[in-house]
Design a protein around this nucleic acid. Sequence first.
DNA 1: ATCGGCTCGCGCAA
DNA 2: TGCGCGAAGCCGAT
Length: 450
Amino acid sequence: MNLARRRQLNSFDYSSGPVVYWMSRDQRFADNWALIYAQELALKNKVPLVIGFTLAPGFLGATQRQYAFMLKGLSDVASASSQKNIPFFLLLGNPSEAIVKFIKKYKVGALVCDFDPLRVKVAWKKAVARSIDIPFYEVDAHNIVPCWIASPKQEFGAYTLRPKINRLVDQFLEDFPLVRKHPFSFDVKPTLIDVDQILRTLDIDKSVAELSWIKPGEMEAHKALRDFAQERLSDYNVKRNDPCLKGQSDLSPYLHFGQLSAQRVALAVARAKANENSKQAFLEELIIRRELADNFCFYNLYYDSTKGAPAWVQKTLLEHRKDKREYCYSLKELEAAKTHDDLWNAAQSEMVAIGKMHGFMRMYWAKKILEWTPVADKAFAAAVYLNDKYELDGRDPNGYAGIAWSIAGVHDRAWGERAVFGKIRYMSYQGCKNKFDVDKYIEKVRKMKG
DNA sequence: ATCGGCTCGCGCAA
DNA sequence: TGCGCGAAGCCGAT
């Protein structure tokens, strides 16, 4: 592995004991640089290799919908890894305490984790680093160019990150080695993962239903990737922004849970025989915009509130904070999709029904929440709450960056001054009407089932 | 149907 | 210091 993908979070040297990969964001067996690196370490030292996944009893408002998708995917990872003599342990409780307890109990010699810019994950790792005296490595298994290598600071827009990524992408966009059957055995057997039993014991919101239109797991993710690359990639450029059509990849739930590697997707798309403009447009979204979202969350402490907005936005929001809102809705009314705007209601209903709102509608949806909420801060919080509760890919940097773009002008520029929005880019019902068949989309959502 | 203005600030050229 | 240009737009003039 290119060692630039990993960095050490402390300064201890290895002495003895098995290697543990603390899996968190990248929940897959194949195409996972963190696991590949952990095996390299274990082979070099001739010791066993173990995967540990710490399951928090509740995580940033995640519901039955997301937990079920995740746990089913994890049980696939567990079977794949145990076949390669790499036992998979699901550790319950406070994540940093659970992993430290495991390390002490089994005299673990080195810890490898994957990369995640979210505050809570950074805090877990800090707590672990304080409590152990073995080498602790972090591998960016989610991005193609590791987040901290791509840029040392928060970028201002796609246009400033793009040349940095493009300069480095050839060094990192390489094929994945296979994880081999591990030759050194760990002598403790993990208990099998009983998804239904775990779901029953978790204290989570069970009112948000599981979904059946999308199947969790690595195998399903690869199927979905093949299907997209063969059937829809060629038309991506012309169809992606029409929410009436199935023009998007629908891969984001798999990418969010790490059941699919973005690098695997990039390799497949780059090699696919398809319209070149479509390939370019898709790779721009997959690589530049995805990694821009990680960059935003990694370097901006306030990625999920208006405090993270650039100065010109803070100023313009302040100037317009007392503007009269023509419509005002409570979070309850928004959640129930009871506004005067049938297009907005459809977008909200789509998210509630199938756990995924069309990409173009996500912008319109968030901007209208800003328009109809008394305070911009509250608008941001409402968008985050709804997104994280219903979207299968909630709690993702892409979600935070998307809301920040819509509501807080992040990665965007100033536009013509108007009420409530100030200089933040506005989007209108009429604009949508000019772009696609609004009534057709509303009708499509009406028939949707999760 | 098409076009320019709206408006900010980075990054680079000079 | 000046200049070009940027994640998805809007609106009014032509």
